[in-house]
C-alpha cells in the first residue's frame, strides 16, 4: 500500500485529488494539509511514501517544504502538482529534491502514474515536461562570456574613443559639453570595466577593437 499526504491551500482541490486517488488500488491518502507548516509537521509525523504538494502555498513556498522533507524524512518522495510548468520551476523543484512533477491541467492518470513512479523512487515528469527541455533550460541559464566593451554606456564609449585619439580630459569635456570632472569619472569607470590600468593599455585595447587604426 502506497501512503500519500496531500498538500494544497485550496480545500476543493484537495477533495478532487483525494476522490481521484481513492479510486486507485494500492493508494491510500493518510492525511491532508492546507499550509506548508502543517505539511512539514504531518510528513515528519507519518512519514508517508509520497507527498503531493503545490509549490504555491500561502504561508511558505512548497519548495521549502520539499527541502525540509528531503532532509528530515528522506524515505518520503515528493510529487509536485502545480499550475506552473515553466522549466525554471521544474528545475528548482527537482533541485530541491522532488521526484516527480505534474501539471494541474495534466490528465488525472498522470498524477496517479507520478505517485506510483515516485513511490518506487523513480523520477517522473508528466508531458509536456521532459528531460530535454530541462536540459535546454539549464544550458541557457549558464553564465556567458561577456565582451567588456558591451558593458560600457554610450557616454563611456564616447569618452574611450576620444581618449584613445589622444584627447585630454578638458578637450573631451569641451567636445561632449560636460565638465572635465565628469570626464574623469567616466574615464575611471571605463578603465575599471575594461580592466585597464594606464594609457598604454587603453591604446592597445582601442587598436585591438578597431577603435583607432594600427599605426
Amino acid at each position: 500500500m502506497t501512503t500519500v499526504i496531500l498538500v494544497d491551500d485550496h480545500h476543493v482541490v484537495r477533495r478532487g485529488i483525494r476522490a481521484l486517488l481513492e479510486k486507485e488500488a494500492g493508494i491510500q491518502v493518510v492525511g491532508e494539509a492546507g499550509s506548508g507548516a502543517e505539511a512539514a509537521r504531518l510528513t515528519l509525523q507519518f512519514k508517508p511514501d509520497v507527498l503531493i504538494i503545490d509549490l504555491m502555498l500561502a504561508d511558505m513556498s512548497g519548495l521549502e517544504v520539499i527541502r525540509q522533507v528531503r532532509k528530515r524524512a528522506p524515505e518520503t518522495s515528493s510529487v509536485v502538482l502545480s499550475m506552473y510548468g515553466n522549466d525554471c520551476y521544474v528545475v528548482e523543484a527537482l533541485q530541491a529534491g522532488a521526484r516527480a512533477y505534474v501539471l494541474k491541467d495534466s490528465p488525472p492518470e498522470e498524477l496517479v502514474r507520478a505517485v506510483r513512479e515516485a513511490a518506487l523512487g523513480r523520477r517522473y515528469l508528466a508531458p509536456p515536461l521532459s528531460d530535454r527541455t530541462i536540459e535546454v533550460y539549464l544550458q541557457r541559464s549558464e553564465d556567458s562570456q561577456l565582451d567588456p566593451y558591451d558593458m560600457l554606456t554610450t557616454r563611456e564609449r564616447e569618452v574611450l574613443h576620444l581618449a584613445a585619439q589622444g584627447m585630454t580630459s578638458s578637450e573631451t569635456a569641451g567636445r561632449l559639453c560636460i565638465s572635465p570632472r565628469t570626464v574623469e569619472v567616466h574615464r575611471a569607470r571605463v578603465m575599471q570595466k575594461l580592466g585597464l590600468h594606464n594609457r598604454t593599455e587603453l591604446i592597445h585595447f582601442a587598436i585591438r577593437r578597431g577603435i583607432i587604426p594600427e599605426k
Binding site: 541557457r140 553564465d143 556567458s144 562570456q145
Partner: peptide
Amino acid sequence: KFEHYGLH
C-alpha cells in the same frame, strides 16, 4: 539573443 554573467 541573451548573454548574462553573475545573475545566479
